[in-house]
Amino acid sequence: MTSERGFLAPGPATRLALVRLLVGSFATIYLLARSPVLADFRGMAAQRFEPVGLAAVLTAPVATQLAFVAWAACVVLCALFALGARFRWTGPLAALALLWVTSYRNSWGMVFHTDNLLVLHMIALGVTPAAADVLSVDAARRGGSRDGVADDARYGWPVRLVSMLTVATYVLAGIAKLKLSGLEWAEGEVLRSTIAHDAVRKAAVGSVYSPLGAWLVQYSWPFPIFGAFTFVVELGAPLALLGRRWALAWAALVFSFHIGVLATMAIAFPYPLSGVALASLLPLEKAPARALGLIEAACSRLARVPGLR
């Protein structure tokens, strides 16, 4: 055990492992649930292709079958990432595969902002072999138990990094509002016009829009409250790094912020709404011992499966 402080202060192996398990599971489920837009590009016209991220190496779309195979491989890798199976390899490969799949999805004329944080978290965890030291198929193969693993610096910093990445993305969103609209953004008219504009565009293409948002935009008085709240959440994000209570309070604010966005704009940010994006801020290691035992038992059974052995 190392005796570092600050960023390298010791942390529990269980928290890091649970963050890996949750983030990897979310990625797997997300890939499956969003397969119509992540795996099937038959409806997309080649001239609409504007590559971003990893896809920027391309000058034209790949064959639709190849895009499907990449998605399928990504699903498998993310599942292995979640299970912590051969994690030294599957960790970085799953992160890379997810970066590819989401880059390709964002390369058709519209950059979404729902995948960014998930990809960043997968990269941070994927390059951290210690994330599979407990509660994993790898740990079960070695015959290790979480009870024998002491808190250590190698389990603390990756969780802090994941939290810092979360905070950074919200601060960036606040900075963009300050740069483009200044403090006036908090007065609410920008938000009101954005909600109205977004709903009309969605209605025009026969898509789902929020009836609550459509009704609310008749009134101007709620929007300064929403605007100020948004600034508190985004620019106040670094407070979450001050300690556990701050982290819990900010996580609750972020969650309610996304509920508000969903209710007024029909825009779902599934990663924070699932709570998984905020998991690194929570004392996950205090989960009931019975639940942790069930995870260990499941990993032990999976460790006997040919191919995972």
């Binding site: 991220g53 950059v111 902002h113 960014n116 990809v119 969103a173 900075i175 963009a176 483009l180 609209s181």
Partner: peptide
């Protein structure tokens, strides 16, 4: 851009 973004949405 993606995955590195300025997050300019709703700004």
């Amino acid at each position: 851009g993606f995955p590195l973004s300025t997050y300019p949405m709703f700004a």
